[in-house]
Lab assay of single mutants.
Amino acid sequence: PPDDERKKAEKAARSGNEEKAREILERLGYSEDEARELAKRLR
């Protein structure tokens, strides 16, 4: 489910793995720019 994926992205971002967070968010349908912004904010 998307919620689980989003949680994974948050966890990745918090542990400093912004790249992985961005990949997950892009898979969820965010654009590259949106995903980058979100990954930064989740950190």
Results as ranks from 00 to 15, higher is better:
residue 19 E to S: 09
residue 3 D to I: 10
residue 25 L to T: 00
residue 11 K to R: 15
residue 24 I to Q: 01
residue 22 R to M: 11
residue 31 S to L: 02
residue 35 A to Y: 02
residue 19 E to N: 08
residue 3 D to T: 11
residue 42 L to Y: 14
residue 41 R to Q: 14
residue 8 K to L: 14
residue 16 G to V: 02
residue 4 D to N: 10
residue 34 E to H: 07
residue 14 R to V: 10
residue 15 S to A: 14
residue 1 P to H: 14
residue 26 E to R: 13
residue 14 R to T: 09
residue 24 I to G: 00
residue 15 S to E: 15
residue 3 D to W: 12
residue 23 E to G: 04
residue 40 K to P: 00
residue 25 L to K: 00
residue 41 R to A: 15
residue 36 R to A: 08
residue 21 A to Q: 02
residue 42 L to Q: 03
residue 35 A to R: 01
residue 22 R to D: 01
residue 29 G to M: 01
residue 30 Y to T: 00
residue 34 E to F: 05
residue 24 I to N: 01
residue 2 P to Q: 13
residue 36 R to N: 05
residue 23 E to W: 08
residue 17 N to R: 05
residue 10 E to T: 07
residue 20 K to E: 12
residue 24 I to Y: 05
residue 35 A to G: 02
residue 35 A to E: 01
residue 1 P to T: 14
residue 29 G to P: 00
residue 10 E to W: 15
residue 23 E to V: 08
residue 41 R to P: 01
residue 6 R to Y: 15
residue 1 P to G: 14
residue 4 D to F: 12
residue 40 K to R: 14
residue 37 E to I: 12
residue 17 N to K: 06
residue 31 S to W: 02
residue 17 N to P: 03
residue 38 L to Q: 03
residue 19 E to F: 07
residue 10 E to S: 06
residue 22 R to E: 03
residue 8 K to V: 09
residue 26 E to S: 06
residue 3 D to S: 12
residue 2 P to L: 14
residue 17 N to W: 10
residue 5 E to F: 10
residue 30 Y to K: 01
residue 18 E to T: 10
residue 32 E to G: 08
residue 21 A to R: 02
residue 32 E to C: 01
residue 17 N to V: 03
residue 27 R to K: 14
residue 33 D to K: 10
residue 7 K to M: 13
residue 5 E to D: 12
residue 2 P to E: 14
residue 32 E to S: 14
residue 40 K to D: 08
residue 30 Y to V: 02
residue 19 E to M: 11
residue 35 A to D: 01
residue 15 S to H: 10
residue 27 R to M: 10
residue 32 E to A: 15
residue 2 P to M: 14
residue 13 A to H: 02
residue 38 L to N: 01
residue 41 R to D: 07
residue 17 N to D: 15
residue 7 K to E: 11
residue 11 K to C: 10
residue 3 D to V: 09
residue 32 E to Q: 12
residue 25 L to N: 00
residue 22 R to I: 13
residue 33 D to R: 10
residue 28 L to H: 02
residue 42 L to S: 03
residue 26 E to N: 05
residue 41 R to K: 13
residue 40 K to M: 13
residue 26 E to F: 05
residue 35 A to M: 03
residue 32 E to H: 12
residue 6 R to I: 15
residue 6 R to Q: 10
residue 40 K to G: 07
residue 11 K to F: 13
residue 2 P to T: 12
residue 20 K to P: 03
residue 34 E to R: 04
residue 20 K to H: 09
residue 27 R to S: 12
residue 18 E to F: 11
residue 42 L to R: 01
residue 6 R to D: 03
residue 12 A to P: 03
residue 35 A to F: 03
residue 30 Y to Q: 00
residue 27 R to W: 07
residue 16 G to D: 05
residue 33 D to E: 13
residue 4 D to E: 14
residue 38 L to E: 11
residue 6 R to K: 10
residue 25 L to V: 00
residue 5 E to S: 09
residue 12 A to I: 06
residue 32 E to M: 11
residue 17 N to I: 02
residue 21 A to S: 04
residue 38 L to F: 07
residue 16 G to T: 02
residue 15 S to C: 12
residue 24 I to K: 02
residue 27 R to I: 06
residue 18 E to H: 06
residue 42 L to T: 02
residue 24 I to A: 03
residue 7 K to L: 14
residue 16 G to K: 04
residue 19 E to W: 08
residue 22 R to W: 05
residue 9 A to P: 03
residue 8 K to M: 13
residue 3 D to A: 09
residue 10 E to Q: 12
residue 5 E to N: 05
residue 3 D to Y: 10
residue 38 L to I: 13
residue 2 P to D: 14
residue 1 P to E: 13
residue 17 N to Q: 08
residue 1 P to N: 15
residue 16 G to E: 04
residue 11 K to Y: 14
residue 21 A to M: 05
residue 23 E to M: 08
residue 25 L to I: 01
residue 28 L to N: 02
residue 19 E to A: 13
residue 26 E to Y: 05
residue 32 E to R: 12
residue 3 D to Q: 10
residue 22 R to P: 00
residue 5 E to H: 07
residue 11 K to T: 13
residue 25 L to R: 00
residue 39 A to F: 06
residue 8 K to Y: 07
residue 31 S to I: 01
residue 34 E to L: 06
residue 9 A to L: 05
residue 26 E to H: 09
residue 13 A to D: 02
residue 2 P to G: 13
residue 40 K to A: 13
residue 2 P to I: 13
residue 32 E to D: 06
residue 13 A to K: 03
residue 42 L to N: 02
residue 29 G to I: 00
residue 15 S to N: 13
residue 26 E to T: 09
residue 10 E to V: 13
residue 43 R to I: 10
residue 5 E to I: 06
residue 19 E to I: 12
residue 5 E to L: 15
residue 30 Y to L: 09
residue 14 R to D: 04
residue 37 E to R: 12
residue 14 R to P: 02
residue 9 A to S: 02
